[in-house]
Write a protein that binds this DNA or RNA. Structure first.
Lengths: 147, 147
DNA sequence: ATTTCTAACTTACCTTGCTAAGTTCATAGC
DNA sequence: GCTATGAACTTAGCAAGGTAAGTTAGAAAT
């Protein structure tokens, strides 16, 4: 897929991620990826498997991320009896504060970028979602499972 | 930027990359990232710095990738006298064959996905490029420097 | 009650991204 | 000729992605 578009999409998201990292770390020592994991919990992911699906990543990666965030005191991990081997994920108050602060820092930044680029937000979003649905067809994972 | 769109873009490119990996490794033991590095050379990158710019990634990452590809015999690295510390990158015949084969495997796959999703390719590409130009404003790197 | 199955999670190991701090080669100034 | 500067690349070390294979807790089957 060295089609120009596919390559350009890759570069675009790589740059967006780095930009988000820079914005966050100017104020809080947290990476965008870690913020996203915490954010997923506020979006309804309550187990590691659900969080992995929301983040669209593998379970081992999510397991490690949960370990890191929990060791940093941003996340509480517990087991609820009678629920198999499942872990219950909850933000600590510190974790919730971090999510709030980060959300504020990033709030509107992307919309502003899209506006300055002269791209109609709704249209680009619709196109992106169509592609997501198309490529995700056949796989049951993804954010729609939770949201 | 936990804006829905920014998150969705991230998920989309992650899935595209994995899909490309699956397609390639079904036939050739090479990752999409390695293919992309080789492909960059066919697109005009002749030094590691240029390749890093084309791949929109850091020079150390590119340095390591070049080392790997050269150790695998896909890439020839040489110095040309009087050119500073610069390395000249060239595909070996095996490397060129790999690029050809991979290009064929991926050919049209992305366009097909876009078509099936009902998204107008040209429009989505134009939008993506506008966003790229906007976020890249101020940075001189990127494919346009070479292509 | 013990065995078996399944879901959820972990461990081990590798790839590949990044930054910060070195190294190397050629040129420019003295 | 010798030193300073700058460009290109490397080394070291960490972050975070992936797969394959292992573990654990409950449910199901006999």
């Amino acid at each position: 897929m060295p089609t120009a578009l596919s390559y350009e999409l890759h570069v675009l998201t790589a740059r967006l991620d780095r930009a988000a990292d820079v914005i966050l770390q100017a104020e809080i020592p947290i990476s965008y990826r870690r913020f996203l994991a915490l954010f997923g919990i506020t979006q309804g992911a309550t187990s590691q498997r659900e969080l992995a699906a929301w983040l669209a990543q593998s379970e081992p990666s999510t397991s490690r991320m949960v370990g890191v965030l929990s060791r940093e005191g941003l996340l509480a991990v517990s087991r609820s009896p009678g629920a198999g081997n499942r872990r219950v994920l909850q933000l600590t108050s510190e974790g919730a504060a971090v999510v709030d602060r980060c959300s504020t820092l990033l709030e509107g930044r992307f919309e502003e970028l899209v506006r300055r680029a002269g791209v109609p937000y709704a249209r680009f979003q619709r196109d992106t979602r169509r592609l997501l649905n198309q490529i995700g067809a056949g796989e049951s994972s993804g954010p729609e499972r939770i949201a």
